[in-house]
């Protein structure tokens, strides 16, 4: 949804969200280090908004999604959902939270149990949370399949009988079963053909409008993120380096990493392609177990100055609603 009103209380906010995975070594399994998968994220998502979270593999975007949903416990920081601190929830309290926050996975092949019928996959969350049974359960499953554009008669079939796009619809139906308000979409279209990607993206938009959903849309496809997201956060090696509205980020990227990423987005226009200059970054992303000192992007940054490898850049607001972590951005 465009131009989200900012005066709203955010649906979800994270403060200094951090997730480190210990690295163990030796017979005594002593901790010798930590993979700093997610390191100090700060952002908020407004109700009915789509926040895009982009970055390359290993940047921590999926881990961030899992920690926000409390599928993993954060190492530090807070997750606030509907005004409630959910960082330390456990047991029954955490279970009561689950229906409100759901996830759609990248590969519908891996996330659907091949031995369960579509009906039992979609109804599982309803049964698990005692939300419906008997005839009401069947009706709810039919309504869900219809909502995602599948024939309700498919309820008795198995996932392998469906194409990739249809399987992703099944995953969406399952995520919708308990009337969630917030859905983390983790690379929901990465495994699909272009023409099918459009179908799934349209479906997600339509459901957002119909049910008032809020999305965290995790993706490495910057072209599609621009189409779906109201605002976009760019992650590099565990940190958010830039956050802005889609238009501001794509039209006027402030971080050199964002600029490099955007320069590689294909445009399906040969004339434009012939004129463009790609910013080619040297080397690979460093290991999150040993991130470089100072700015984490400094080892690959085409404009880095000595300062960058000494001092970590602050997370600054350079323009209204446009934040960036770079010493040189202005």
């Amino acid at each position: 949804m465009r131009g989200c009103p900012v005066q709203h209380e955010p649906l979800l906010a994270v403060e200094n969200l951090t997730k480190h995975f210990p690295v163990m070594r030796g017979v005594l399994r002593r901790q010798v280090g930590a993979v700093q998968a997610v390191d100090g994220l700060d952002f908020a998502i407004q109700p009915r908004e789509t926040l895009g979270l982009v970055g390359e593999s290993g940047c921590g975007k999926s881990t961030a999604g899992r920690v926000i949903l409390r599928l993993e416990a954060p190492t530090a920081g807070r997750v606030i959902f509907r005004g409630e601190d959910i960082t330390r929830l456990e047991g029954e309290a955490l279970r009561r939270l689950r229906p409100h926050m759901q996830m759609i996975f990248q590969d519908p092949q891996d996330s659907l149990n091949p031995r369960m019928t579509v009906g039992s996959i979609v109804s599982e969350p309803l049964r698990e949370h005692g939300a419906a049974k008997g005839a009401a359960l069947r009706e709810r499953v039919e309504a869900l399949l219809e909502a995602v554009g599948l024939d309700p008669a498919f309820a008795n079939r198995y996932p392998h009988e469906f194409s990739g796009g249809q399987r992703q619809r099944i995953g969406v139906a399952r995520a919708l079963a308990l009337h969630p308000e917030f859905i983390v979409c983790d690379e929901p279209i990465a495994a699909l053909d272009v023409s099918i990607q459009a179908q799934v993206v349209n479906l997600l938009k339509e459901l957002q409008e119909r049910f008032g959903l809020t999305y965290l849309f995790i993706s490495h496809d910057l072209r599609m993120v621009r189409h779906v997201a109201d605002r976009v956060a760019v992650m590099y090696l565990g940190k958010i380096v830039e956050l802005a509205t889609s238009d501001a980020l794509y039209e006027e990227p402030l971080h050199p990493y964002t600029r490099a990423l955007l320069s590689a987005v294909p445009t399906h226009d040969p004339e434009r392609e012939a004129r463009r200059t790609r910013i080619i970054l040297e080397g690979d992303v460093p290991s999150p177990a040993a991130p470089p000192p100072g700015c984490r992007f400094s080892t690959r940054c085409p404009v880095a100055v000595p300062e960058c490898s000494r001092r970590e850049p602050e997370w600054r607001t350079l323009r209204p609603g446009h934040r960036v972590a770079c010493h040189l951005a202005e």
Binding site: E56, H220, L261, A264, R278, I279, R300
Partner: peptide, 9 residues
Amino acid sequence: DATIQAQIL
């Protein structure tokens, strides 16, 4: 990833 893709291209 995008930046590696750009290198390979």
